[in-house]
Design a protein around this nucleic acid. Structure first.
Length: 488
RNA sequence: CGGGGUAUAGCGUAGUUUGGUUAUCGCGCCUGGUUUGGGACCAGGAGAUCGUAGGUUCAAAUCCUGCUACCCCGACCA
C-alpha cells in the first residue's frame, strides 16, 4: 500500500480494491468488473442473507430486466417519481453500414414501446400483482429478487456508486396496513442484524426525512453506518409503500367480509455497496480486513520450504491441518506455489484481509507447535497441533467479535450531540461523525444546511434524542434530534 | 452537459519545450540455476505500427488539425 487513510482516504479506498483484487473499472464508463475474489465475497454475503430471507418466509423470483416506459408513467401519475437516470432501450437490431466499416443502429427496428432498464422493479412487480391478487387469501405475497439494476450515475466510485449494481429487492403485498408496516420494520431489523452479525458493522436505525426517502414510498426506513473517515453510508433501506403502488396499478382484493381494498406494500433492498462499507469500516493501511463469517478464505496455510528439510514433510503436515480444518467446515486454503517466497505471501494475504494465517516450516515439523497470525491485530501465537481446530474456530469467533467491537467503539465515539451551529460546522469540517442536532422539520432549513456544510440528515433515529429542543439552524422548536452527516 | 488534464510494452513511466541513429527505466512475463521464517538473487530472453486519422518536413513520439477514449472538478444518486 502506498496511500494511507489519513493522507488520502479516497485514494486509499481505491488502492485497497485494486491491490486486493476485488474489482476494477471496465471498458464501459461507470460499470465495474467484479473480479473473482470480490465476487466470492459477494456470493457469501448473498448466500448468508438469502438463507435469512428464506427463513423469514420469503421466496425468490425473477422479474424482467426491461420495463415498459408506460409502467413508469403510471407510477409517475400517482407519485411524482422520476429524477432517476435511466438507460432506455429503443431499438432491437444493429447492422453494418454501407461501407461495412462500422456497426450502426438499424433505425428500421425502432421499438413500438421504449423499454427502461430497471432502476428498481416496483412497477413491473405491481403490474404483476394486479393479476395475482384477487382475494385476501392470496395475501400476503412475500417475494425477493436477486439481480442487478441500472441507474445512470454521473460520478462513479467502485462498489459505492456504479451505473450498474448487484442487489436484492424484496417486494411484498399485504391485506392490512399494520401487517405491511410490521413487515417494513421486520426487514429493517433483518438488515440491522445481518450488518452486525455478519459484516461486523454497527448501524443507526431510523426514518429518512421527506427529501431523502424513496419517492414511491410513504415512509423509508434505513440503516446508516459510520465509515472510518467520519462519513456515513446507507447500508440498506426498507420502504413502507402504503397503497401507492396498489393504487397506481389497481391492485384490489376482496376481503373476508366482501369489501374491496387496495393492497398494502413494502419493498426493501441492499446491494454490492455493502462491500464498500466493509472496506471503509474495517480495512487498515496494510490492506483489507474481512470478518471471518463472510471471508471467502478464513484461514490460509503457508509452507516455508527450506533446504534443510524435505518439501514433502512440510506438505504432509500442511495437508493434515488443511483436512482437519476443512472437516470443521472452515474455508481454508493451502498456498503451495513455489514461485513466491513466504514473505511475499504474507503481504498478499494481509492485503486480501484473510483472518488467520498459519505458517508451516522446519520449526513446526520439529516441535509440532504451529505459528498462527491474526490479521486484525497482527498478533502471533504458537499453538499445539492437536488442538488446532478448536483454537482456530474460537479465534475466528474472537476476530469477528473484535472487528465489531472496534467498529462499535469508533462509531459510538463519533455520535455527538451539538446545539450550536458554529460547532456543528467545525465538527463536519473536522472529524465528521454522526451529529445529533435539532431540526425544525422544514426542507428549506435542510437545503441551507446542506449548501453550507455538505451534510444531510441521514435519518431521524429511533433510539436517540427524543427530547424537545431548538433547531440548530433556525432556532425554531423541534421535537427530537436527527442524525446529520456527510455521506457517500 | 460545462471546465481542466492525460494518452509511449501487461502496469507504471523517461523522452515532447528546442524534430535527427537502434525509444529510457522500473515492475511484471518467459528460460535455466541458486534460494525460501515479512514483498529473494544471478544469468539469459521476449515484448511498442508512441490512442486514432490526416497534414507540415529530407526526417515526427516530438510541430499543426480533426476524431476517440479515459481521468479529475461541478450538476444526478442505492
Amino acid at each position: 500500500m502506498k496511500s494511507t487513510r489519513k493522507k488520502n482516504y479516497s485514494k486509499w479506498y481505491h488502492e485497497i480494491i485494486e491491490k486486493s483484487e476485488l474489482a476494477e473499472y471496465s471498458g464501459v464508463r461507470g460499470f465495474m468488473i467484479i473480479k473473482p475474489y470480490g465476487y466470492a465475497l459477494w456470493e457469501i454475503i448473498k448466500n448468508e442473507l438469502d438463507k435469512i430471507l428464506k427463513n423469514t418466509g420469503h421466496e425468490n423470483v425473477y422479474f424482467p430486466l426491461l420495463i415498459p416506459k408506460s409502467f413508469l408513467e403510471k407510477e409517475k401519475e400517482h407519485m411524482e417519481i422520476f429524477s432517476e437516470g435511466c438507460a432506455v432501450v429503443t431499438h432491437s437490431r444493429i447492422k453494418k453500414n454501407e461501407k461495412e466499416k462500422h456497426l450502426v443502429v438499424d433505425y428500421q427496428s425502432k421499438l413500438r414501446e421504449e423499454l427502461v432498464i430497471r432502476p428498481t422493479s416496483e412497477s413491473i412487480v405491481w403490474n404483476t400483482y394486479q393479476r395475482w391478487i384477487q382475494s385476501y387469501r392470496d395475501l400476503p405475497i412475500l417475494l425477493n429478487q436477486w439481480g442487478n439494476a441500472v441507474r445512470w450515475e454521473m460520478r462513479n466510485r467502485l462498489f459505492l456508486r456504479n451505473s450498474e449494481f448487484l442487489w436484492q429487492e424484496g417486494h411484498t403485498a399485504h391485506a392490512t396496513k399494520e401487517e405491511a408496516f410490521k413487515e417494513t420494520e421486520k426487514m429493517l431489523n433483518v438488515y440491522t442484524n445481518f450488518s452486525k452479525n455478519f459484516l461486523a458493522i454497527p448501524v443507526i436505525k431510523g426514518i429518512k426525512p421527506h427529501t431523502e426517502k424513496f419517492q414511491g414510498s410513504k415512509m423509508t426506513f434505513c440503516i446508516e453506518a459510520l465509515m472510518q473517515d467520519g462519513k456515513s453510508l446507507q447500508m440498506a433501506t426498507s420502504h413502507f409503500l402504503g397503497q401507492n403502488f396498489s393504487k397506481a396499478f389497481n391492485v384490489k382484493f376482496t376481503n373476508y367480509d366482501g369489501t374491496k381494498h387496495y393492497a398494502w406494500g413494502t419493498s426493501w433492498g441492499t446491494s454490492t455497496r455493502l462491500i464498500g462499507g466493509l472496506i471503509m469500516s474495517h480495512a487498515d493501511d496494510m490492506g483489507l480486513i474481512i470478518p471471518p463469517k463472510i471471508a471467502p478464505i478464513q484461514v490460509v496455510i503457508i509452507p516455508i520450504y527450506h533446504k534443510n528439510i524435505k518439501d514433502h514433510l512440510i506438505d504432509e503436515l500442511s495437508t493434515t491441518i488443511l483436512h482437519c480444518l476443512e472437516k470443521q467446515k472452515i474455508r481454508v486454503k493451502y498456498d503451495q506455489r513455489k514461485q513466491f517466497t513466504p514473505g511475499w505471501k504474507f503481504h498478499e494475504y494481509e492485503m486480501k484481509g484473510i483472518p488467520i494465517r498459519i505458517h508451516i516450516g522446519l520449526k513446526e515439523i520439529k516441535s509440532k507447535i504451529i505459528e498462527i497470525v491474526r490479521r486484525d491485530t497482527h498478533e502471533k501465537r504458537s499453538i499445539v497441533i492437536d488442538k488446532i481446530h478448536n483454537i482456530i474456530i474460537k479465534l475466528l469467533e474472537k476476530i469477528q467479535n473484535n472487528l465489531y467491537e472496534k467498529s462499535l467503539v469508533r462509531t459510538q465515539q463519533s455520535i455527538i450531540q451539538i446545539d450550536q451551529y458554529q460547532k456543528f460546522k467545525e465538527q463536519l469540517n473536522g472529524p465528521g461523525g454522526f451529529i445529533l442536532s435539532h431540526w425544525d422539520g422544514t426542507d428549506e432549513t435542510l437545503k441551507k444546511i446542506q449548501k453550507e456544510t455538505e451534510a444531510t440528515i441521514r435519518c431521524i433515529p429511533f433510539s436517540y434524542g427524543k427530547k424537545q429542543g431548538h433547531c440548530i439552524y433556525s432556532g425554531r422548536v423541534s421535537q427530537q434530534r436527527v442524525v446529520f452527516s456527510k455521506s457517500y
